[in-house]
């Protein structure tokens, strides 16, 4: 039972983050809060990838003296780290695009509330 807990608690924290992000996207009415929920959801996915790359007894994927690279168990899997490294910066840039769209919506309709916005569009 303790083994099951120690092997899975990182996944549970990831799922909590995903649920918080989904709550922000579905329940909240303000579009800025929806965008923040989207960002939290993305952080959950990134944390899941990084936690999957972990190996017991291994070190970070930088070649160190005394740890031969021929022994794979010495180093963590470097591929998820690389993918998430680019995903974080691209996430920041696309968040900028989302906020630019929100600024334009506010300048045109004068509100960021979802229901008022639907009324004004019709």
């Amino acid at each position: 039972m303790l083994d099951f807990f120690m092997g899975h608690y990182a996944y549970w924290f990831t799922i909590i983050l995903l649920a918080i992000g989904l709550y922000g996207m579905l329940i909240k009415k303000n579009l800025v809060k929806k965008t923040i929920g989207l960002s939290i959801f993305q952080a959950g996915v990134i944390l899941f990838f990084v936690s999957v790359a972990m190996k017991d007894g291994a070190t970070v994927p930088v070649k160190a003296d005394g740890l031969p690279v021929s022994e794979v168990a010495n180093y963590m899997n470097a591929l998820p780290h690389t993918l998430m490294l680019t995903a974080i910066v691209v996430g920041v840039a696309t968040l900028g695009v989302a906020f630019a769209l929100l600024i334009n919506i506010y300048n045109r309709y004068g509100t960021l509330n979802e229901e008022e916005l639907l009324d004004k569009i019709q």
Binding site: G7, H8, I15, D56
Partner: peptide, 29 residues
């Protein structure tokens, strides 16, 4: 709210079949 709870329970059920984190003989290693 029901959708969020169902989503969370589905993910928890799916995560119970994932391999233990950090074991060296996982499939991806």
């Amino acid at each position: 709210l029901l959708l969020i709870i169902a989503f969370t329970l589905l993910l928890l059920f799916a995560a119970s079949d994932l391999p233990y984190r950090g074991e060296a003989d996982n499939q991806m290693n």
